[in-house]
Every structure is written in structure tokens, then in C-alpha cells.
Amino acid sequence: MTETDIAPEANQDVHVRDLFDRMTRSYLRSVLSDELIAEHARGDLGHVSEPLARLLAWCERRPPHQQYAVKVEADGSFRLIRFAGRGQKPAYVGDQRFATLQEARHGAFLRHVKDLVET
């Protein structure tokens, strides 16, 4: 290795993404309301209010290890999981079982909201 040789470093893009995420979270916290959560709980798909659309966009664009998915259990109930990385078995999140897919999706949404306000 020469004196001027490169030293491998972590991807510096992560800092830029963090800055963007802080700005986004700041806006989302300002529009978060009981009405917004109630709108999601109704399960209206497709055309939603702009604040909810922006909140959902943030949820969906989080890094893979921060996203939630729904797992169908053998008894027909639904649980929340998180992906653990390439080739790894997903991990359950909490022990709550949901009776319907819509309830499970809203459960995932509430997890995101909790992450938004607490982290």
C-alpha cells in the first residue's frame, strides 16, 4: 500500500440520509394527529389525505431493518415481523395476534408511528 493509498471507509451517504430523515420526521410529527391515525384505521386504500400519504411514504421508505411486514400464521391469525437481512429468518415483533389483515396493517402503522415519535 502506498502512502497515498485509499483506506476503505463506511458509506458516507448514510449521514446525508439521516439529515433528510430528521427533516422529514420533523414535518411528520407536526402533522401527526388522532384524526390521521383514525384515517388509517378506517383502512381506506388508494386516495388518502396528503399528510397520511406523506406519513405512509416515510414508513415505506425506511431502511429494510426498520420496516414491518405481516405474517400469516397457521391458525389464520396475523402477526408482525421484521426482516433480519439477506437469507435470515424474519423475527417476530411483539406477541400480538391480529384477527384481520387490516388490523395487522394498522398495527404495523402504529409501530411506525411509535418509532416516529419516540426515536
Binding site: 415505506e60 421508505r61 420496516q67 400469516v72 415481523i81 426482516f83 439477506r86 396493517r105
Partner: peptide, 19 residues
């Protein structure tokens, strides 16, 4: 669902996976 970061923004919903 497992590997593509774009999939949730694309589908607009969390995946629903089975055993």
C-alpha cells in the same frame, strides 16, 4: 418482499408472508 427496498413504496402496503 425480503430483499427489495423498493417493494413497500411500490406496493404501498406491508408484505403478507407465509411459512
Amino acid at each position: 418482499s425480503f430483499d427489495a427496498h423498493i417493494i413497500q413504496p411500490m406496493t404501498g402496503q406491508p408484505p403478507v408472508v407465509t411459512d
